[in-house]
Computed example of a mutant assay.
Amino acid sequence: MNQSELFAAGIAQLPEQIINLIARGAVFVINHSGGKDSQAMYLMLRDLVPAAQRVIVHADLGEVEWPGAVDHIKATTAGEPLHVCSSRRGLLQMIEERGMFPSPSQRQCTSDLKRGPIERTVRAVTRERKADGIEAWGLVVNCMGMRAEESPGRSKLTPFKRHEGNSKAGREWYDWLPIHDWTTGDVFAHIAAAGQSPHWVYAAGMSRFSCCFCIMSNKADLTTAARLNPDLYRRYIELERSTGQVMMMPSKKHGRQTLEQITGVMAGEGAIV
């Protein structure tokens, strides 16, 4: 099939609401962490949404983010406007001030470092564009790369819905999970089919991206991250000691464990190169 035939086939598989929003000139905001899911989602949207209707937003996580995230985004996208935003406080500062780490039930790392800055940025961008007379920029489709396969919680997410809290002041806002039903295999295959590679951390052994050390990580990822980023790992160990808390939730099998107990990597050990 030629490019126009591929486009038509892709459009035919989209929900009717999305087809209508594309036709109405909605701006599609692509949340891009630099990870594999964001990359695959971008590639899907690149082939379906006109370039003038695509904007990329990246929440910079500062010192806890894997190096090269923004460079990777720029290298694998087509030059759409890229808005990099951040919280006024970094994650480690938040932990120090609160005296505790985020948890699966209290994920300030998501709300404060990602969702909040991104939504503020999107609102500011749409206000500016509407002020320039581009009325369609009051119509927002916020695209995120969460997938059902990742966790029971994410499997229950609604793939498309109107965001009432952000649909105000002349703005109509929808949240969309374009690859919610994709498998990990689908994600990597889509990236490869585009002639691209995912961020280097996957080849280094990581299965997750975003924060180097995530409260949702498994033992293998924590161990790999400790070897790849020993200086940051040491800071997490220091925070565990200074707060008297541990980063990871206790497990039924092992109970409460420090990062050193989980990974077997003692703070101060060198990185694997």
Rank of each mutant, 00 (worst) to 15 (best):
T223K: 01
H83N: 08
K168C: 06
R120F: 03
W137S: 11
V265R: 15
L177M: 10
G270K: 13
A220V: 10
C212G: 03
K219D: 15
W173Y: 14
V201L: 10
F209W: 07
K156E: 08
L45D: 04
E240T: 07
D181W: 03
R256A: 04
T77A: 07
H58G: 01
A148D: 11
A169K: 09
L113G: 09
F101L: 00
M216K: 09
W200L: 05
F209C: 07
I56V: 15
E63C: 14
N229Q: 13
N142W: 04
A131V: 08
W173C: 01
C211R: 13
G195I: 15
V201H: 07
L6G: 08
G79D: 07
A169S: 09
G79W: 04
M146R: 07
E65L: 08
R162L: 10
R89D: 14
E128A: 13
A69G: 03
G25Q: 08
E97H: 01
W66Y: 11
E119T: 13
R24P: 01
F209Q: 04
P250T: 01
L21G: 02
V29K: 00
V27L: 12
Y174V: 07
E65H: 08
A203H: 08
I118R: 09
K161D: 04
P250M: 03
S155R: 15
F7Q: 05
D47T: 09
F213V: 00
V201E: 02
E172D: 12
G68S: 12
L14T: 07
G205P: 09
T158R: 13
C214Y: 06
V246P: 01
R208V: 06
A131T: 06
G165L: 12
V64E: 02
L6W: 08
P50V: 11
G145A: 13
D112Y: 06
A220D: 15
I237D: 01
M44G: 05
H199T: 08
S242G: 02
S33N: 09
A226N: 07
L239W: 02
Q257G: 07
A203I: 08
L222N: 00
D60W: 04
L232D: 08
S151K: 06
C109L: 14
A69E: 00
N31C: 15
V140L: 04
C214F: 15
T224V: 14
Q39G: 10
E172A: 12
V187F: 00
